[in-house]
C-alpha cells in the first residue's frame, strides 16, 4: 500500500514539474513589461478606432468608438445645411436680376409658321422621365435636409414624419430610376455634345442674349447646352453612385464609406439643383420658343435660325425648305 502511495506521489510530482515547466515556457515571464501599461494601450486603441472582436454581426460593431460620425454630423449640419440655402437663393436671385435687366430672349422675327422637328418622341419621353424624377428627388432631398428647420415648425412633427416617410421611399426608389435615365441620356446625347471650337465663340458672345451683337454659330446643341449636358452627366453619375451606396446597405459598405458618400451626395445634389435652375429658366421663360421644342417636339423656323443656325441649314437642306 505504502509503495503504491510513493509511486503515485512520484508521478504527481513529475507531472506537476512538467506542467510548471511548460506553463513557464508558454506564458513567459509574468513580470510586467517595463513601462508598458496595457490598460492605457487598450484605451488608445479604442480612441484610434481599432477594430476588435465581437459576437454581434451588425455593421460597425467591431469598432468601439467610430470617429467619423461626429465629423459627418458637423459637415452635414454646418457647411452643407448652412451654405446650401444661400447658394440656392443666390442662384434664384441672380436669375431674377438677369431677367429684370436683360429680359426674355425673344424671337427677333415674327413666327413663320414653319415647324421643324427638333426632339424625337423617344428623346422627349426620356427628358421628361428624368426631369420629373429630378424634381421629385430634389423636393424629397431638400425636405430631408431642411424639413426639420422649415417644415416641422409649420406642420408639426407627426404630419412631417408621415410625409417624410413617403418622401424617403420616393427618394430611394426614384433615385436608381433617375440614375438609369441619366445613363440613357448620356448614350443618346453624348455625340452631339462633344465640345468644338465654335462653342468658345458662343460663350464670348454670351450666346447672343446680351447686347445687340450678331448671334454666334451653333449646331444642334449650343455651347451653353453642352456645358449643362456635361455637368448633368457628372452630377448624375456622382450623386447616382453615392446614392446607390446609401440606398442599399447590403454590400457590406462601412459606416465611414456611407458618411463620405452622404457628404458627396448632398453637396452634389445641391449643386445639381442650383445649376438646374438655370436650365429650367432658359428652357421655359428665358428663351421664347424653346419650351415647345421639348414639349411638342417641334420648333419654329425662326427660332432654329436664331439659336442653332448651322443645325437649321442642315435641316433646311434635308426638308427642302429653301434658304429663306
Amino acid at each position: 500500500m505504502k509503495r503504491y502511495w510513493s509511486i503515485g506521489m512520484a508521478i504527481f510530482t513529475a507531472a506537476w514539474l512538467i506542467a510548471g515547466w511548460t506553463g513557464e515556457a508558454v506564458c513567459g515571464s509574468d513580470a510586467p513589461s517595463p513601462g508598458i501599461n496595457r490598460r492605457a494601450d487598450f484605451w488608445r486603441g479604442v480612441r484610434e478606432g481599432e477594430a476588435g472582436t465581437t459576437t454581434s454581426a451588425s455593421e460597425g460593431h467591431k469598432v468601439l468608438i467610430q470617429n467619423g460620425g461626429q465629423n459627418w454630423r458637423q459637415i452635414r449640419n454646418g457647411p452643407i445645411a448652412g451654405a446650401a440655402p444661400w447658394l440656392l437663393s443666390a442662384v434664384v436671385f441672380a436669375i431674377g436680376v438677369f431677367f429684370v435687366l436683360v429680359g426674355r430672349d425673344r424671337l427677333e422675327e415674327p413666327r413663320s409658321g414653319v415647324a421643324i422637328p427638333r426632339f424625337s418622341l423617344f428623346e422627349r419621353i426620356l427628358h421628361w422621365f428624368t426631369a420629373s424624377l429630378f424634381i421629385l428627388l430634389a423636393l424629397t432631398g431638400l425636405s430631408m435636409l431642411f424639413g426639420r428647420a422649415v417644415l416641422i415648425p409649420a406642420f408639426g412633427l407627426g404630419a412631417f414624419a408621415a410625409y417624410m416617410q413617403a418622401g424617403l421611399l420616393v427618394h430611394n426608389f426614384s433615385g436608381p430610376l433617375f440614375f438609369a435615365g441619366v445613363l440613357v441620356e448620356a448614350i443618346t446625347w453624348a455625340k452631339e455634345n462633344i465640345p468644338k471650337r465654335m462653342d468658345l465663340v458662343w460663350f464670348k458672345n454670351l450666346g447672343g442674349m446680351v447686347g445687340k451683337g450678331p448671334r454666334p454659330h451653333a449646331g444642334r446643341v449650343n455651347g451653353g447646352e453642352k456645358v449643362w449636358f456635361w455637368f448633368m452627366l457628372t452630377a448624375g453619375l456622382v450623386s447616382g453612385v453615392t446614392g446607390l451606396v446609401l440606398d442599399f446597405p447590403i454590400f457590406g459598405q462601412s459606416r465611414l464609406t456611407m458618411q463620405i458618400a452622404h457628404v458627396i451626395h448632398a453637396s452634389m445634389g445641391i449643386l445639381f439643383l442650383a445649376a438646374s435652375f438655370g436650365h429650367i429658366y432658359i428652357g421655359t421663360i428665358g428663351a421664347e420658343g424653346t419650351f415647345e421644342g421639348m414639349w411638342r417636339g417641334k420648333v419654329d423656323k425662326v427660332w432654329a435660325k436664331q439659336h442653332n443656325d448651322l443645325w437649321y441649314e442642315q435641316k433646311a437642306k434635308e426638308l427642302h425648305l429653301g434658304t429663306n
Binding site: 487598450f42 486603441g45 476588435g52 459576437t55 460593431h61
Partner: peptide
C-alpha cells in the same frame, strides 16, 4: 454588444 480588443493576446 461586447467588444474585445487584443482578443487572445496578453492584456
Amino acid at each position: 454588444h461586447v467588444v474585445t480588443l487584443g482578443d487572445g493576446r496578453r492584456g
